[in-house]
Nucleic acid binder design. Structure first.
Length: 969
RNA sequence: GCGAGGGUGGCUGAGCUAGGCCAAAAGCGGCGGGCUUAAGACCCGCUUCCGUAGGGAUUCGAGGGUUCAAAUCCCUUCCCUCGCACCA
């Protein structure tokens, strides 16, 4: 029977679907476990989850791996006898799907290309995708679900749901009401992207420009302007508040629009745009008067920290649409400002046109405020001057200026020590003191804050997008007691790989308040304010509990799923007055499956989703229900490059499965890297995996068609292979326990193949003992590989034994076949073979006779002594010289001891003991048949010093224990 | 900058948490051979350099150090990848 994965895999998919093979129920433990191996009573419930997919697009091969990794573990646990639940749901919360639909409706070319070229959506289907759930359902049904079923994921499909479902929403409602009662939610202000045209918040997907813009917190230094007796605040925006001591003047755009506005009952002079932004950032703003910037030019304003009056100069480079539109100038430390000042001084005519006395400007000198600590370069007193001059910058048009400025900012941030004028902050590094300096001066009222984007942001409608501060609800991840509980979850959890443990702790410490609602999107409304929707990362923190009851919840009318219902379900009948019986029944199933044994997830989710998952479990559930373990998964590449559905640089699972077969796809994905490592889908490698499986299949077929063989006819070489098999079982099992799928599958597949290669070369395969051995090895191997390549192994195992591999128990080490002695003995045969080959290669001869000389008895006596005494040469010599026969040999013995000590070093006790037990001459004698075939030569084995020895080459005395002398003729 | 993970032979990638069986697994590629009418597939062997006896020399980003012994431990240094949020 030829290997035809398509046909074979389809058959198994149908069998699984028809029998409901992976539907897991608490009461249904025994029914699915096949054959007599089922030990139903002590079957452990094992609950495995993976983040539910977000179907805002199709499924590609990277997703395939994400879901196959937990599947392999699930299959492994089933063979170990566990009752395993592996469910899947669909995450549709939030705006991505809505955004995708909008772009589809507009027939945006990029979006159309993704849908039609990358994900092959037929033209006539497009209209069905024009509603959010229509869109989601298409990708759920046509891509994810089909892909997952093709891959053979052992999912309990009865439990699927999506997060826009009314029952799920009741569950989330319960969660958020409970969290609020626990004090985990707080109302507050939060910066959002806000379109000034549409007058509403927008998301990243709504943007035309500035998708990567970051929120920046500017410090506003409140300069004072005595405007004919009226005190007016001129807030100057800066990202470097600590430079306030170095301010020599200020700049304003003389031609832009500015206003005097009432801001929180003070008069502020800011750009017209800034007034609007301040209004959006929760200030009370009323514009009183409108001016051009020139109004302020030539005026003197007072530095709130130093009390100095500085001159306001006109400058075209000031952007009125950035922050307040007024900036302070620190020429000693900003190359930009330094050059601007030089140019201002030079252009007397321009100054005079604003009524400024050029002499006043000429007097302005940079004020150094910090010293740069740098062993390599001397930045001088005025680092900005040094930066400008050493870079050969002549004018503000010089493109090098921006880089010089950025470099100096960086340098000063990390290596700048503040001068004495800073008092309590003097001597400190900028990076250590900036925040404190800012906060302290904000407290005294000298500074204010303002949010601004790092780059221009434009809405798709064409409107300006600015930072607005909006009332929102936060999850208070900054609560100390909550953080402490989250740390406790981490402490009690298995983190795979182990070096991720610190990342959870780090994230817990670093997390701040998290705004958990949005203005629109799919999902659940905030229970107490229906204008808002709970955002995606916040409605997906404890949903694993929902899987345990999702299918049965369908029988309960939505209106019954109130707070009390879920309280009874999750907290028991005592938690409510009159517990709903249905809830209590569901509670049993929840308690049966929970907690989650392992959650498999991408490493990028540690910093949000996974840690939220820990926080929420810590708050909502008892310690006994806390997550037991998380396995982190790496990222995927395609032919060495990032996958990208917008560029069409993806492989679809369906296409890969059609071309190679699902087993090949699975095996490649699990075997090419450990789950947490990044992997690279390379067609040539996948193709070769396919060839390997084909070869494996053919070999299997040959054995299945052949005779059973006879276990009573085992020879040395059979026992060797069987011993290797036990090693493999041990390695694979240990690896699987740690989710090391690569190690496990490598050992089971390639590792054993290695041994088999030697075995086939070494053994007479037609013997009945060899037949039995090979069939036994095949059967064990099929079970070990069943989690990885379930289709192929089920088929072969069923042909071989009548039972699918997945229904057979996981192999255990059979002590009867474990033998270090046999392995050590065979190792000697291998070495002898290698040595003979080496000699033949080097001498380029074709011997007719091979003579092997085993070391004399006295040499073995020395070995035994080394084995007893250890690797201390002196001690060994002392012991050895007790024997008179050895004492005579003096130097010879000394040399031998040295050699043998080297041999023994690094060997474990088992191996040394086995070496003592073995009789070299017999081992080689038994292998003469093989050696004769291998070298097509006569093989003679002698013991050094024996009477019948034939030693024409006089080589016998070169023999040492485990290193026989060899003579070729 | 902060946090995390890396730099190994033509490529991919083990080994490095417990230093010695490591010239360094395995796969791919390359070379040679077998099988075959032939190609593919399949099977076997070789694949750092030197060597007419199983050996030797030089390698695991770079430079030091510890040790009888280091790819593996310590220090310094260079380079690369990822994350740094309110977005799934």
């Amino acid at each position: 029977m030829d290997y035809d994965p398509q046909e074979l895999e389809q058959r198994w998919r149908e069998r699984w679907a028809e029998s409901g093979r992976y539907e897991a129920d608490p009461s249904d433990v025994a029914a699915h476990a096949g054959g007599d191996e089922a030990a139903s009573d002590d079957e452990e419930p094992t609950f495995i989850t993976v983040p539910y997919p977000y179907p805002s697009g199709g499924m590609h091969i990277g997703h395939a791996r994400t879901y196959t990794v937990p599947d392999v573990y699930a299959r492994y646990r089933r063979q170990q006898g566990d009752n395993v639940l592996f469910p899947i749901g669909w995450h549709v919360t939030g705006t991505p799907i809505i955004g995708a639909v909008e772009r589809l409706k507009k027939r945006e070319p990029k979006q159309m290309s993704v849908l039609q070229d990358t994900y092959n959506v037929p033209e006539e289907t497009l209209s069905e995708l024009e509603t959010p759930m229509g869109f989601a359902n298409h990708f759920i049904e046509e891509h994810y679900k089909k892909g997952m079923q093709s891959l053979g994921l052992s999912v309990d499909w009865r439990r699927e749901f999506n997060t826009n479902d009314e029952r799920y929403s009741q569950f989330i409602t319960w969660q958020y009401e409970t969290l609020r009662d626990h004090g985990r939610l707080e109302k507050g202000l939060h910066p959002v992207k806000f379109c000034t045209d549409e007058q509403q918040p927008v998301t990243t997907h709504d943007l035309l420009e500035g998708e990567n813009a970051e929120f920046q917190e500017y410090t506003l230094v409140r300069f004072g302007w005595d405007r004919e007796g009226t005190e007016v605040t001129v807030p100057m925006a800066t990202l470097r508040p600590e430079t306030v001591y170095g301010v020599t003047n200020a700049y304003i755009d003389p031609e832009a629009d500015y206003v005097v506005a009432d801001v929180d009952s003070e008069k502020w002079f800011v750009s017209a745009e800034a007034a609007e932004k301040l209004r959006l950032q929760a200030h009370d703003v009323e514009v009183l008067e409108e001016y051009e910037g020139s109004e302020l030019v030539g005026q003197r304003v007072e530095n709130p920290i130093t009390g100095d009056d500085v001159l306001v100069l006109p400058a075209g480079f000031v952007d009125a649409d950035n922050a307040t539109g007024v900036v302070m100038s620190v020429p000693a430390h900003s190359p930009d400002d330094y050059v601007a000042l030089q140019e201002a001084k030079a252009d007397t005519e321009y100054l005079e046109s604003f009524g400024i006395d050029p002499a006043d400007v000429a007097d302005i000198e940079p004020i150094p405020i910090l010293d740069i600590e740098d062993d390599d370069e001397d930045w001088g007193e005025v680092p900005a001057q040094y930066a400008v001059e050493s870079n050969g910058i002549e004018s503000s048009d010089d493109p090098k200026l921006a880089k010089a400025t950025k470099d100096l900012y960086n340098k000063e941030f990390h290596a700048g020590h503040l001068k004495d004028m800073y008092g309590e902050y003097a001597g400190e590094l900028v990076k250590d003191v900036r925040e404190r300096f800012k906060d302290d001066n904000a407290d005294t009222g000298a500074f204010d804050l303002m949010q601004e984007f790092s780059e221009e942001v434009v809405c798709r409608c064409g409107g300006d997008v600015v930072v607005a501060e909006q009332d929102t609800w936060f999850l208070t991840y900054n609560d100390e007691d909550w953080k402490r509980m989250a740390h406790e979850v981490v402490d009690g959890m298995d983190t795979i790989p182990d070096n991720t443990r610190g990342e959870y702790d780090h994230t817990i410490d670093w997390l701040n308040e998290w705004p958990c609602i949005r203005n629109y999107g799919l999902g659940t409304r905030l229970p107490w304010d229906k204008d808002f929707v709970i955002e995606p990362l916040s409605d997906s923190t404890v949903y694993m509990a929902y899987y345990t009851i999702a299918h049965r919840l369908q029988d309960v009318p939505v209106e019954d799923l109130d707070r009390e219902f879920f309280d009874a379900l999750f907290y028991g009948e005592d938690a409510v007055d009159d517990a709903d019986e249905r809830a209590l029944s569901l509670r049993e199933e929840w308690q049966y499956w929970y907690p989650v044994d392992y959650r498999f997830s991408g490493n990028d989710l540690i910093s949000n989703h996974l840690t939220f998952y820990l926080f929420h479990h810590a708050d909502l559930f008892d310690e006994s229900m806390w997550p037991q373990g998380i396995v982190i998964m790496g990222m995927g590449l395609l032919e060495g490059e990032k996958m990208s559905s917008s560029k069409g640089h993806v492989v679809l699972p369906g296409e890969a499965i059609e071309k190679y077969g699902a087993d090949t796809v699975r095996f490649f994905l699990l075997n090419s890297a450990e789950p947490w490592q990044d992997y690279d889908w390379r067609a040539d490698q996948v193709g070769s995996v396919r060839d390997q499986l084909n070869r494996f299949w053919n070999r299997g077929q040959d054995l299945i068609e052949g005779p059973d063989g006879d276990r009573d006819e085992l020879q040395h070489i059979d026992r060797w292979l069987l011993s290797k098999l036990q090693d493999t079982v041990e390695t694979v099992t240990e690896a699987m326990e740690n989710s090391e799928t690569r190690t496990a599958s490598q050992a089971a597949f390639y590792g054993l193949e290695e041994s088999l290669r030697w075995y086939r070369r070494r053994a007479d395969l037609d013997r009945s003992g060899a037949q039995w051995t090979q069939r036994h090895v095949l059967e064990t191997r099929l079970r070990l590989l069943a989690p990885f390549v379930p289709f192929l192994t089920n088929e072969l195992h069923e042909q071989l034994t009548g039972t699918p591999a997945e229904d057979a128990p996981w192999p255990e080490v059979d002590a009867e076949f474990e033998s270090t002695v046999v392995e050590v003995e065979e190792r000697q045969v291998e070495r002898l073979t290698e040595d003979v080959h080496d000699i033949i290669d080097v001498t380029d001869t074709d011997p007719e006779t091979i003579r092997v000389y085993v070391a004399a008895d006295w040499k073995n006596l020395v070995f035994d002594t080394v084995a007893d005494v250890g690797t201390n040469v002196g001690q060994v010599m002392g012991e050895v010289m007790q024997h008179e026969s050895l004492r005579e040999r003096g130097n010879e013995v000394n040399q031998l001891v040295q050699d043998l000590v080297d041999v023994v070093r690094g060997l474990d006790d088992d191996a040394i003991e086995a070496m003592r037990e073995m009789d070299e001459a017999t081992v080689y004698e038994d292998a003469t048949g093989f050696l004769r075939r291998e070298f097509d030569a006569d093989v003679e084995i002698y013991v050094e010093g024996s009477e019948d020895i034939h030693d024409p080459g006089e080589r016998a005395d070169k023999a040492t224990p485990f290193r026989p002398a060899i003579h070729l003729e």
